[in-house]
Design a protein around this nucleic acid. Structure first.
Lengths: 186, 186
DNA sequence: GTCTATACAGTGATAGAC
DNA sequence: GTCTATCACTGTATAGAC
């Protein structure tokens, strides 16, 4: 654990609150408690490298807490699906916390971090589809169903923030959880 | 029709491509073909007023092409639902075009345009729920089902852009359309 | 490694000539 | 009404003292 890694969570929160363009170096400096000089010492590439480090950190969290458990689930066992939704509710703070990859996908940042963003969502859908296939769902339906769940989560974040009603996100998760688990009861 | 209204569509595209913070006055000037002086003549409030005019313009389009048809649908008739999805696919260019209200909901712009954004999604959900109630769906389920559809559309835009696969959005619409129409076949 | 000082391009916005 | 010129300011990034 270097000091560089210690700064990443603070950077993440700053990017989530202000967006990539909206997060100025002054704010990033204040959020981390590091002077601009120190920030450029850890991230010579500037804001781009800071954002890349943040995205990689988020990806690592999801790999460990979501993607890998879905991949390693025993076929036909719904627990990994349940755990995924629990992790999602926790990570996105019931919809109050923005998904950086999702927010970046809507803006100019998409071009700059295209591979990372694509990889994040692609792996989420693929690992979830793998768990669904374990319940006997055929491949094309598993992928479509997985994409639908991931899209619903992303849309749930937007809606709950737009309406300022966290229950919208919670409800979205409840419904998607039930929908996916119904594959396992048959 | 004033020259002000003529500039709004060009401003909308600029905001969609670059985001609110990312769209500089130089770009807005280039997109509209108007000098900064002219822009400030039409929009004395600057960027904020331009964005507000764009959001109002989008809202008006949806009111005329989506919300009102849903409200005026004859109870039990699914045509308005079908028309909504057609309009959505057209408006969002099969997921290639960003939803400004959705993008703003994820950033700092949310605070500045809170009422407009909330009103847009609130009316979308309410008008869609009204059409579903016309098919005999009880109120709480109608609202939840409507919110799920709107969230899926927003998430579909994110996913299709993130993966650079318009088919993801198209598939989302296909599935949601089928899900909502199933209320009418009973 | 950390900070302060600074370079310099670009920002939103305004003034004023035409 | 339209543009150009300009304003004050903030942006990212760097240099250099400590």
């Amino acid at each position: 654990m270097t000091d560089r890694d210690d700064a990443v969570p603070a950077l993440a929160e700053a990017f989530r609150e202000h967006g990539f363009e909206g997060a100025s170096l002054a704010q990033l400096s204040a959020a981390t408690g590091l002077g601009k000089g120190s920030l450029y010492n850890f991230f010579p590439g500037g804001k781009d490298e800071m954002a890349a480090a943040v995205l990689a950190n988020v990806d690592a969290w999801f790999t460990g807490n979501v993607f890998a458990p879905l991949r390693n689930a025993t076929p036909g066992d719904a627990d990994a699906i349940d755990a995924m939704f629990d992790a999602v509710v926790y990570y996105f703070r019931s919809g109050r916390r923005v998904c950086l990859q999702g927010a970046f996908a809507l803006g100019r940042e998409r071009d700059k971090f295209a591979a990372t963003i694509s990889g994040y969502f692609g792996e989420w859908i693929e690992s979830l589809a793998a768990a669904l296939r374990g319940a006997g769902v055929r491949d094309s339906e598993a992928r479509a169903s997985a994409a639908e769940a991931v899209a619903a989560i992303q849309g749930g974040i937007i809606l709950s923030r737009a309406l300022d009603e966290p229950e919208v996100f919670t409800q979205t998760v409840v419904r998607q959880r039930a929908r996916l688990l119904s594959h396992f009861t048959g």
